[in-house]
């Protein structure tokens, strides 16, 4: 079992777990993910690595309750653990990042979590980092302080205007672009709709943009192909070719559609166990 050393409730539906996984912690790099199961009959789901401590042998993941499995995960307490955890998987962000100038990170919802180690890495190289984070409302914003520690500035947007800019993260990004500020690269992680919108905003000015896709996976090592996506007209596997891809080459419509493949079953599973419902 992979023991939970620390659990933090970031929002009512978003939990952070620091998990004992020494072998994974030794190798983890920003951009990579792990596959976990939350119980013996559980499915295998990918969770992006939000941090790691090689000395303590822990990795950090953030889970947002959306269905049965994430719901069960969010009920895990300190001292309990994940029966299975494998990784680190996927390609590290490092070779894809531009190591000079200024980067904008855009984190939506619990997508802020995987942004953290990437921002940290950019900062280490001396890249100027502006981080934009967004959520539906102020209470759902997560990891703002942690992100501030690895960013030169943090800009906030909320859908309801309860904090920062009233609107979407894309508006904040658009403003920065309109101001003519130097931007060498944009890294956006969050809901598919948000990443697609970011790709739309950065397309015209031709800003290099990375997104981290989060499709359904089973093994996570290239074996099943459940995580297929089309990038620049070519079929890729997110688990081994990604999860980070050039935002302007990703077929988002296809990803949104593939994301709904098990919508009916997901609902059925949730109803069958009545374990969810944290999401209003």
């Amino acid at each position: 079992m992979f023991k939970i050393a620390e659990r933090r409730d970031l929002t009512p539906v978003t939990k952070l777990f620091r998990v004992q996984a020494p072998l994974v912690a030794r190798k983890a790099q920003p951009g990579q993910f792990v596959i976990v199961r939350v119980r013996e009959q559980g499915e295998r789901i990918p969770l992006t690595i939000a941090g790691y401590d090689r000395e303590k042998g822990t990795i950090t993941v953030v889970v947002q309750e959306v269905g049965k499995t994430s719901g069960l995960a969010c009920r895990l307490e300190e001292g309990q653990g994940f029966p299975d955890l494998a990784g680190p998987l996927g390609r590290p962000a490092e070779p894809l990042l531009i190591k000079t100038g200024r980067a904008i990170t855009v984190g939506g919802g619990f997508g802020v979590a995987p942004i953290l180690p990437i921002a940290g890495l950019l900062r280490q190289w001396g890249v100027k980092v502006t981080s934009i984070i967004g959520a539906r409302t102020a209470d759902l914003l997560i990891l703002e302080d942690e992100l501030a520690a690895v960013s030169d500035e943090v800009l906030v947007a909320t859908d309801d205007g309860s904090r920062g800019t009233h609107g979407f993260v894309t508006q904040v990004l658009q403003d920065l672009i309109d101001k003519g500020q130097r931007i060498d690269q944009v890294i956006a992680i969050g809901p598919m709709a948000m990443m697609r919108a970011v790709a739309g905003v950065t397309q015209a000015p031709g800003l290099a943009t990375l997104v981290s896709v989060d499709p359904v996976m089973v093994d996570g090592t290239g074996m099943c192909g459940a995580c297929r996506l089309t990038v620049a007209g070519e079929v890729k596997f997110a688990c081994v070719d990604g999860p980070l891809f050039d935002a302007h080459q990703v077929d988002f419509d296809e990803q949104v559609r593939r994301g709904k493949m098990y919508a009916v079953e997901e609902k059925r599973a949730l109803e069958a166990c009545r374990c969810g419902g944290g999401h209003q």
């Binding site: 119980r39 009959q41 499915e43 098990y262 079953e265 069958a272």
Partner: peptide, 8 residues
């Protein structure tokens, strides 16, 4: 064995 097992 779905939904007793979680994978659909």
């Amino acid at each position: 064995l779905f939904p007793e097992h979680d994978t659909p």
